[in-house]
Simulated scan of single mutants.
Amino acid sequence: MTLTLSLFLSVFLYLQPIFGDEVKMDSIDPVISAIDGGSSGDLAKFFDTSISLNVNGQQGEYSKNQAEIVIKDFFKKNPSLGFKVVFRSETNPSLISYIGDYQSTESSYKVFIRVSQQGENLKIYSLDFVKA
């Protein structure tokens, strides 16, 4: 009985970090869906009050509303054919970076998303669409 309990506890503790990462990765899913669907409104829900934005060379610090307009224009000119995250980096539990591939009818883009974890919410503080 004790051996079985010890084995179960060991397996649980070993797998706990794996399950923890899945929960964190799931929290970015609405952002991924918004980019994949080309929805500036859904994406803007995750913007911090101000955001560093680089869209195809148009760089600057924008308010949440200004950034939504810039992204809306980008999605209009570059309709989505798909988006997927290819890399995730977590140097600090509250700061996470993602790199993704965005495919449009015109070009391919590398997307760099930097988010901060604020309680239960993710806030995008930096977003880059760079032509590949």
Rank of each mutant, 00 (worst) to 15 (best):
P79C: 01
F46S: 12
L53N: 08
K64C: 09
E106F: 05
V31M: 13
L5V: 05
L81G: 05
Q66I: 06
I71G: 00
L15F: 12
K84C: 04
V31Q: 02
T4A: 14
I69T: 15
G37K: 10
N121F: 09
T49V: 12
V23N: 09
G60T: 02
D128L: 08
I96F: 07
I96K: 13
N65R: 13
I69S: 15
L43A: 04
S104H: 01
L5F: 01
K76A: 14
V115N: 11
S6K: 08
R88W: 03
E120D: 14
Y62E: 10
G38E: 04
G37W: 04
S104D: 03
M25C: 04
G41Y: 02
L13D: 07
S27M: 12
I18H: 06
L122T: 02
S94L: 13
S39N: 14
I28N: 04
L5D: 07
I113H: 06
T49G: 06
M25Q: 14
E22F: 11
L43P: 06
L7D: 05
D21Q: 14
K64I: 07
E106V: 08
Y14D: 03
Y125K: 10
V55P: 03
K77T: 11
S80W: 00
S27W: 04
D101Q: 08
V86T: 12
L7C: 07
F112T: 13
L127D: 04
S27R: 13
P79R: 00
E22Y: 15
F75M: 10
K76Q: 12
S108Q: 14
D21W: 13
I96R: 15
L13C: 13
I96G: 14
L43E: 04
S108P: 00
G20Y: 14
T4E: 12
I124G: 00
D21G: 06
L122R: 04
L9M: 06
S108K: 15
E106W: 03
L81R: 13
S52E: 13
T2C: 03
T2F: 05
T49S: 12
I71V: 13
F74V: 01
V115H: 09
I124V: 09
F75V: 03
D101R: 09
F8C: 05
D101P: 02
D36V: 02
I96V: 15
K76L: 10
L13S: 11
N54P: 01
S107N: 15
V130K: 08
Y62F: 15
E61L: 12
S33N: 13
D48P: 07
S6G: 11
G100M: 11
R114P: 00
I96P: 10
S40C: 02
V85L: 06
D42E: 15
L13V: 08
Y102S: 08
F83R: 00
F46R: 03
S40P: 04
V23H: 06
F83C: 00
L81S: 11
V55I: 10
G60P: 05
P30Y: 03
